[in-house]
Amino acid sequence: MLTCQQLAEVVTDYLEGKMNFADRMMFQLHVGMCKHCRAYLNQMKQTVELVAATGKIEAEPMPDDVQAELMHRFRNWKTNKQ
């Protein structure tokens, strides 16, 4: 049998699809019967979704001066290598 404490440590193996058939069945059986572990699994999934949301707000465009500096370096590099 899989205890709640053991289940909490293999949630990512489950979500990553890295469990063999028997372990996967045992995991699903436990989650089906235990509302606390069901809550834990759902919270781990929601954590992943919220982290994904941090990826979206970060996407601010590159500042013009940074872009200009890089292009300046590129032209120098091009000149020097010839």
Binding site: T3, C4, Q5, A39, Y40, L50, A53, I57, E58
Partner: peptide, 30 residues
Amino acid sequence: KGHWASPPQRWEAMTPESLLLRDELVVQLQ
């Protein structure tokens, strides 16, 4: 015996109605 004694706390913030709190959580997560 490895059962939950202090189970995961319910997350009210995860409902679609609490989008504001969700935005706040995303900032906290960063």
